[in-house]
């Protein structure tokens, strides 16, 4: 596997490489412009033909979205997570549909839940799980589920919902302090 990383490094710029906590997992960060070339190289030359998943992580504090492409090679028996960071203010990227047909669904899901658009994916704007969704994409970290549900469905006057155990602890410890 180290050889493979070396070969990759000789062709592409690897921003960060990290071994996973187990042997057969590597995590590579590449530049977003070279992602297609890296994936294509891995698929054609290094037998990473199985795309298990495309995932998105919201790093709101860095103003970035992370896109992770999880690959598996049946020959090498190795997992590879190839990740890129894109700007959170400009959530656009290009599709990998030409390399992996099942990416269509994963990209559609990310488009809907994170609002990242994938240029070249014809079906990305179809509904995946949400219908008539007008709010911010719900999986973004700044989407407040509680506020949304209160606004949309009204406050259900649920006593339990508002309780917080820390509050009760401070209630009874205050009671002792007053004594």
């Amino acid at each position: 596997m180290e050889d493979l990383i070396k070969r990759l490094e000789s062709i592409f710029k690897i921003v960060e490489k990290k071994r996973g906590k187990r042997d057969n997992l590597w995590i590579l960060e590449v530049e977003k412009d070279s992602l297609h070339a890296v994936l294509s190289y891995l698929k054609d030359n290094e037998s990473f033909r199985h795309l298990a998943l495309i995932s998105c992580v919201d790093w709101i504090e860095n103003n970035k979205f992370q896109l992770s492409y999880i690959l598996w090679s049946y020959q090498k028996r190795q997992n590879l997570i190839v990740k890129i960071f894109i700007d959170r203010d400009k959530p656009e990227f290009k599709t990998v549909l030409n390399l992996f047909p099942q990416a269509e669904i994963y990209e559609r899901e990310i488009r809907e839940l994170y609002g990242v658009t994938f240029e070249g994916n014809p079906t990305q704007f179809e509904d995946f799980v949400l219908e008539d969704w007008e709010e911010m994409p719900p999986m973004r970290r700044d989407f407040d589920t509680l506020k949304y549900s209160q606004e949309k469905y009204g406050d259900r006057d649920s006593e339990v919902l508002k309780t917080n155990i820390r509050k009760i602890i401070s209630d009874y410890t205050d009671e002792w302090r007053r004594k």
Binding site: V160, T163, I165
Partner: peptide
């Protein structure tokens, strides 16, 4: 209140 702290559903109120 440890039971209430770990309850993921907020089913437990002290």
């Amino acid at each position: 209140g440890t039971c209430a702290a770990i309850c993921e559903n907020e089913a437990i109120k002290m």
